[in-house]
Design a protein around this nucleic acid. Structure first.
Lengths: 257, 257
DNA sequence: TATATTATATCATATATATGAATTTCTACT
DNA sequence: AGTAGAAATTCATATATATGATATAATATA
């Protein structure tokens, strides 16, 4: 079933503009997986025929999804569905820069452990699963320039990744989100992070080679899909003596929609 | 001298698109102060005549500046230059939410102190002034629901705010950025923040009523103008037991330009 | 005077169309 | 086989125009 076989209903008398209706229809195709990450979407002329509108209206709809980050337009080539990748990961999700610099460098990732355990009450609440159901708990160390600064604890529901094993996780050739996307058909579209200052407990101090009770930046990131289904709870413990968490607002402010 | 009297040169043969040239000309008007915060800019028809292009091209240029946050379009009313205000401040610059919630509430600000001192080497470097030149150092306490969580230290160059006094600062009716904007003609357009975990020193522990060496989130924010001239160095010390620093990426990612 | 109606100004949506730029694919030539 | 050039595909820019939606201002009416 190709997208070009689908029937779309654009209500010309609706109070919601046609371009927005088209944007929503295309968005639905994305999360219903009728358009998959990396895939080429139909060209503008085809979309014009499909939706029976003018090309300007199609361009406005596609432009909105491009601005939101779901589509990537390439002149002379076509429009593609965004996919997680080493190149795209970078700016979107990694917020650390070495002291004194503003450059965000790509982190080195080192696997620590992979285990199955029962979800805590809090984890279950966040992941919207029953307390006590199985989750994978994965630890990684992240570093820059051969020095480790970050311990990552990932919690994901086993039910959503039934075939995941330590081997598959360790042997992935790309980013973790790319693994979710390509092997499990789960596409993380938005993240929100909550930051706190804490101090190093025994585990963290050992892994990061810092003193017990050293100041540690604790980041809790929630990764969600198109319809805000929470997939991943990732807690980072960061030793910030040599690196900063960087957050830049480029313009005065910006409502997405 | 009104903007409508100015002469604009749009090169129709340039490789940079006309809409971008117009966007840049309008942006220049903004930072040259020919269009001031809150001001109504010429309507689309006038801009069409001014730049001698079609209305679609004008709309694309204005749309870009709107997306960047510099202009605010209001249907039926006109297009205005963004201004700092209590209502706009909110989402753009205050990143804290009470534990368990995602709502970012408006903080209560309490003045602590205002003094003139010599810039440290680091402050001078950030503010691009000579070490030892005069700066104002201003302390504030910020709270949510009558409880104080944040101490803010503001450093600004005296040379850029020659007439600023403690009285003027304390008696402002609006936000601090609004004061810069309206009384000193200095408009902060972009901020970048660097976060670290530290621990409470004597001053901070006293002001926030926490134990010495408690974990403290330290945020260094640099506020800049249109051309990235650094105006303000603001360091926040945050007691994060009850509040989180929240950072949300709404879509996969987003290049502004 | 207070309120409802009408007119006006301004941005928003939508169509139709033409030309340009970037990329890939095809084709002909050496 | 390899390369250069032409053709085709696709998105980007730009113009012209018509109609709609929204907010304010002006006017008429009770």
């Amino acid at each position: 079933m190709s997208i070009t076989d689908l029937q779309f209903n654009i209500d010309r008398d609706s109070k919601t503009p046609m371009w927005l209706q088209i944007r929503n229809e295309l968005f639905n195709c994305l999360y219903r997986d009728e358009l998959r990450p990396g895939q080429l979407i139909p060209n503008e002329k085809t979309l014009v025929d499909l939706f029976n509108v003018s090309i300007g209206t199609v361009r406005k709809a596609v432009g909105a999804l491009e601005k939101e980050g779901f589509l990537i337009r390439k002149q002379g080539l076509g429009t593609f569905v965004f996919q997680h990748d080493k190149s795209t990961f970078h700016f979107a999700y990694f917020h650390f820069a070495l002291n004194g610099t503003d450059e965000i460098s790509y982190p080195e990732v080192e696997f620590i452990s992979f285990e199955t355990k029962k979800a805590t009450k809090y984890e279950a609440k966040i992941l919207n699963i029953s307390p006590g159901s199985n989750v994978y708990q994965i630890f990684n160390k992240l570093g820059i320039n051969k020095k480790n600064y970050i311990v990552d604890k990932i919690i994901i529901s086993q039910a959503k990744f039934p075939t995941l094993t330590e081997e598959i996780f360790k042997n992935r050739a790309n980013t973790i989100y790319n693994l979710y996307q390509n092997k499990f058909n789960i596409f993380i579209t938005n993240c929100s992070e909550k930051l706190k200052a804490t101090s190093a407990d025994k585990t963290v101090s050992a892994l990061l080679n810092v003193k017990l009770d050293s100041p540690i930046l604790r980041i809790e990131r929630i990764g969600q899909t198109y319809h805000n289904e929470t997939i991943e709870l990732r807690t980072s413990f960061v030793h910030t003596d040599d690196i900063d968490y960087v957050n830049t607002q480029n313009s005065t402010f910006g409502d997405t929609f």
